[in-house]
Design a protein around this nucleic acid. Structure first.
Length: 296
DNA sequence: AAACACATCAACCGCACAGTC
DNA sequence: TGACTGTGCGGTTGATGTGTT
């Protein structure tokens, strides 16, 4: 059957947007909000298809867009998130306020991918490339490593939260905003991570603890569908339900093993050099390339 | 100064998902 | 329940900018 095109291509303009078109689009959205993208161009008087308008708005004209080069911290975060999420640019962008999926995708394809390659890491798997000789000793699967890292970070954050809650409970729930990890853990990224399967039970008995499962849907509407919308990520990240409902179960078995992992595998906490350092540690440590904890 | 190669990034395209009827 | 529509996502392209010879 074939779907109908998103717009009638006849007479519609393509290619770069002019400042005049930008102005028309911005003015229209300011006054009316975008409403239906399909009908917007006609109502606004633009000879563009709705899709093109939406793209122009979301990637360039939106007032909260952050222009300019990525900071080392942002680049680091992109690499870390990519290790977990893969090429799910919208989900990654949801964790970098003001950055668009397109921008991050471009950053990855033009800079970060090459950087990883130059460090001897496969940009798809974040594993060392065989030609660099790091992989001879069969490193732990990415899933295993990520599980251990996430769980360790979660434990650390929850422990900190417990301490803080003792200080603030009487004041009506003053939430610390320092636990970025918990926010992400309770966002779709955490969902994605928890839903990874299969994984190595010997090192990640923690990963399917009831505790982890109960947190899965606390903030994200779906259990991370393949093409989950970026807005869900944003909602999850900025939602009020940051905290794991299983915070009271810190002493369960899974936590013990995760804690052991945390103790066994110290994780670096400085800048981009975290990649280089971990290349060296790959052959000896099951916790390798992506040290999520270092960010938090 | 010109030609070429490479890098960057805005924009397009097709597909998949979610919602509606 | 299935057809259809609207929207968003990820991959790719192509124009433009920059560096090198």
């Amino acid at each position: 059957m074939g779907r109908t095109p998103c717009c009638d291509k006849k007479g519609l303009k393509k290619g770069p947007w002019t400042p005049e078109e930008d102005e028309i689009l911005v003015d229209y959205i300011k006054k009316n909000s975008h409403g239906s993208w399909r009908t917007l161009p006609k109502q606004a008087g633009l000879l563009r298809c709705g899709k093109s308008c939406r793209l122009r708005w979301t990637n360039y004209l939106r007032p909260d867009i952050k222009r300019g080069p990525f900071t080392p911290e942002e680049e680091k975060l992109v690499i870390q998130l990519h290790a977990i999420l893969g090429n799910r640019w919208a989900a990654i962008a949801a964790q970098l306020p003001g950055r668009t999926d397109n921008e991050i995708k471009n950053l990855w394809n033009t800079h970060l991918k090459k950087r990883l390659l130059s460090m001897g890491l496969d940009p798809k798997t974040h594993e060392p490339l065989p030609s660099y000789g790091f992989a001879k000793q069969a490193p732990a699967s990415p899933t295993t490593r990520h599980m251990a890292q996430w769980e360790s970070a979660r434990l650390e954050a929850e422990a900190r939260l417990s301490r803080e809650s003792m200080l603030f409970t009487s004041s009506g729930g003053v939430k610390s905003d320092c636990d970025h990890f918990l926010r992400i853990w309770n966002s779709e990224i955490g969902d994605s991570f928890r839903n990874l399967a299969p994984f190595d039970e010997s090192t990640t008995a923690t990963s399917q603890s009831p505790c982890s499962r109960t947190t899965t849907t606390s903030s994200s509407s779906a259990a991370f569908p393949k093409n989950s919308k970026s807005s869900q990520g944003i909602m999850a990240f900025h939602g009020s339900d940051y905290y794991s409902p299983c915070s009271n179960n810190v002493e369960d078995d899974s936590s013990d093993s995760a804690l052991q992992l945390l103790l066994d595998f110290p994780i670096s906490d400085d800048d981009m050099s975290f990649l280089e350092e971990n290349i060296g540690s790959y052959s000896e440590s099951p916790v390798g390339v992506v040290s999520m904890v270092s960010k938090f």
